[in-house]
Amino acid sequence: MDITEDTVRQVAKLARLAMTDEEVHAMAPELNDILSYAQQLQKVSLEDVEPTSHSQLLTNALRVDSPKPSLAREEALRNAPDSDEGQIRVPAVLEG
């Protein structure tokens, strides 16, 4: 897989990261190195291995449906840069 500068820009955009041209230029080969390192795994024969979605073999780590105390509101809002009427206040977002 070849990571082009356009791929870097696209990924940065999806992750809402602002990157300068220099950073994009430097990042492309770095990502390529990382990917080609990981790509060694593609050489492993997996014919007799069941596909998995998780590294843990554990299944059904479940919780009983019983309520636990929530945070106090002032505590919950403490990390928010701005709040209003008990709600978190953010810049206007309008779909479309």
């Binding site: 209003d84 709600q87 978190i88 810049p91 206007a92």
Partner: peptide
Amino acid sequence: HSIDGTHTLVD
């Protein structure tokens, strides 16, 4: 969304 379009409140 606030009526004047300046901000959004989230619950």
